[in-house]
Amino acid sequence: MRLTVNGTEHELDVEPDMPLLWVLRDELGVTGVKYGCGIAQCGACTVHLDGMAMRACQVPAAAAEGAEVLTIEGLGGGDALHAVQRAWIDEQVAQCGYCQAGQILQAAWLLETSPAPSDEEIDRVMSGNLCRCGTYPRIRAAIHAAAAALREG
């Protein structure tokens, strides 16, 4: 299969039903994307697939043929931090950090589709991303901060 990950094209020989999460982590060594539950219940494996935030554990490799994938490694373009990543640091969101790559990618997608989300919108979009450390208040604050930063350019 062909797959572009963080701007780099790859040719891979994998089973068509291999989850994209496996392709990224085990075949390409892109380990920023995390395995949490394997059944789309936690959001830890969230990536952008052709611009859409998706649970990589649910995407068969065949469904990602020719797609462009963005993971936490590529979110800021590689060298710089994305506004959401900067806000995450400023708000000191992470505790253990395991879920945060998925949280950040989901939040970045939210702000692409809704530049000034309400609290309800944030909760609706982000509630599929679980955090055992309970960082939800800081996640919400960081999203508001990132939204403001992006609006100010």
Partner: peptide, 22 residues
């Protein structure tokens, strides 16, 4: 308006095997 259903309920191509399980 919020989180698209297809973020988790992946849309398959016709004839493509689904991922299944409880």
């Amino acid at each position: 308006e919020f989180l698209p259903c297809s973020a988790c309920h992946v849309t398959l191509d016709a004839g493509q095997s689904r991922t299944d399980g409880p």
